[in-house]
Computed example of a mutant assay.
Amino acid sequence: MRLPLLPTLMVAAMVPVMIGLGVWQLHRANWKTDLLARLEARADMPALDRPERLTDDMEFRRIRLDVACPDQLPNGRSGKSVDGRAGFSTVLLCRAAGGDLWVETGWSDRPDGWTLMNPYWPPARPTEMTGTLVLSSGKGPRYVLVLETAPAPLLRLAPPSPETISNNHMAYAVQWFAFAATLGIIYAVYVLRLRRGK
């Protein structure tokens, strides 16, 4: 019996592609594991004092900067307190020696919690601030400084941690290998039934 042409061609094309995607995800899993190890090592390092400019290799590093936030209106977005409560983070667009950056100042249980801040905060003149530097996920400056100490009456935010970055690539690899195996089994059963029908 001759093999069915179209199903055979489709399986012959798709199975290697699925296996290739699974292998690629395995490589991605190794890359992500290495990345997370490097980020965790940075998080354990002492604070970097007033770097001349901010770079991506400072992500999750504690940094001390002189920051000014002239004429800035704070705004709120979702955030967690250091003890895990859901609420709102107060965010400012500020300036440091390395350029503009976002500053997450503190946590409140209300979206307008920033209205309760000391009237002399945010500072218009350069003021020393220490926090953890992370990459921004939205528009505007590339970096966010999450402060270690919140201006009263705001509370401290949960510090950024590499543990919040997922590494699902191994699971994705297993899925692709499973898809390839499933397609192979379905094709084998299909051919077997065709032979029995002859």
Rank of each mutant, 00 (worst) to 15 (best):
R2S: 09
L3W: 14
L5K: 11
L6N: 03
T8E: 07
M10Y: 05
M14T: 08
V15N: 09
P16V: 06
P16I: 09
I19C: 15
G20S: 12
L21A: 05
G22R: 04
G22T: 05
Q25W: 01
L26Y: 13
H27P: 00
A29H: 14
A29C: 08
N30H: 12
N30G: 12
K32A: 05
T33Y: 08
R38H: 13
L39F: 15
E40Q: 15
A41D: 09
A43Y: 06
D44N: 13
M45H: 06
M45N: 08
A47S: 14
E52A: 14
L54C: 10
L54R: 11
D56H: 06
D56Q: 10
D56L: 11
D56M: 05
D57N: 12
R64D: 07
D66G: 05
A68I: 04
P70C: 07
D71V: 06
Q72Y: 01
L73Y: 02
P74Q: 13
N75D: 00
R77K: 12
V82K: 12
G87L: 00
F88A: 04
F88Q: 01
S89I: 00
L92R: 02
L92D: 00
L92V: 04
C94Y: 01
C94W: 02
A96H: 06
A96T: 09
T105N: 04
S108L: 10
R110G: 13
P111F: 11
D112R: 13
G113M: 09
W114P: 07
T115Q: 14
L116R: 14
L116N: 10
M117R: 15
P122R: 14
R125P: 02
T127Y: 07
T132A: 14
T132R: 15
L133N: 10
L133M: 13
S136Y: 03
S137R: 15
K139R: 13
K139C: 02
G140E: 11
G140I: 15
P141V: 03
V144C: 13
L145R: 10
L145I: 07
V146K: 08
E148Y: 06
T149N: 13
P151D: 03
P151V: 07
A152I: 02
A158L: 10
P159W: 15
P160M: 12
P162W: 04
E163I: 04
E163N: 12
E163K: 12
T164H: 11
S166V: 01
S166R: 15
N167M: 09
N167P: 08
A173G: 11
V174G: 05
Q175V: 01
W176V: 08
A180M: 07
T182M: 15
T182N: 07
G184I: 01
I185D: 01
I186Q: 07
Y187F: 15
Y187G: 04
V189G: 00
V191S: 03
L192Y: 13
L192E: 08
R193P: 06
L194Y: 08
R195V: 10
R196N: 11
